[in-house]
């Protein structure tokens, strides 16, 4: 059950929220450990995986907040340089998506990632984040709007550079 079935999903959720493979792996392990350690406080009101996802999201947000701005900027710039030379257009798209996501507030970013890269429905997102379904709906629509605006801005900027 939990460990095998959710291993890759949890690692990817952490990866999409944190970007670093290493941090994602660490955080996912921590999430499983916390979930299993506290198995007695899991009351079965929600599904096990939504509880596991919640722990993962919270750990990721915590971790990101702790990260030192300069360090992660440098690291990001290094990655960017590599990706520009190595993988071409696909890497540029990925980079643009990441940059755009970075400019969203945490609640909007999390909702968007759960919905569009992890295919959770409203109710599942509400259970993971412990918020009402109505809030999921409004955050998701705000997140999409903002994402498209930022994306458009980035594209315009790119045009100007050419």
């Amino acid at each position: 059950m939990p460990l095998r079935r959710y291993r890759d999903r949890v690692v990817n959720l952490a990866y999409h929220l944190l970007r670093s493979r290493e941090d994602a792996e660490d955080t996912a392990q921590e999430a499983f450990t916390q979930a299993f350690s506290a198995i007695n406080s899991f009351r079965g009101e929600s599904q096990f995986w939504t509880w596991l996802y919640r722990i993962t999201v919270n750990l990721c947000l915590h971790r990101r907040r702790r990260a030192k701005p300069c360090e992660s900027l440098d690291e990001q710039e290094q990655n960017d340089a590599e990706e520009h030379t190595d993988a071409g257009a696909q890497a540029v798209t990925k980079l643009m998506v990441e940059r755009t996501l970075d400019q969203l507030s945490a609640p909007l970013r999390v909702v968007l990632i759960l919905r569009e890269t992890h295919d959770l429905n409203y109710e599942e997102i509400a259970a993971v984040l412990n918020i009402p379904v109505g809030t999921v709906r409004s955050r998701l629509s705000a997140a999409r709007l903002k994402f498209r605006q930022l994306w458009q801005d980035a594209e315009n900027e790119e045009e100007q550079h050419r």
């Binding site: 460990l3 690692v11 990866y15 792996e25 350690s37 998506v97 968007l112 994402f147 994306w151």
Partner: peptide, 27 residues
């Protein structure tokens, strides 16, 4: 769909082979 397409460009990874061992050891 424009937003969804963009987000699906994010790569996916696999957990390392010793993932489970590390969880169980920490447990």
């Amino acid at each position: 769909h424009s937003v969804r397409r963009a987000l699906q460009a994010l790569p996916r990874i696999q957990a390392s082979p010793d993932f489970e061992r590390r969880v169980l050891e920490a447990l």
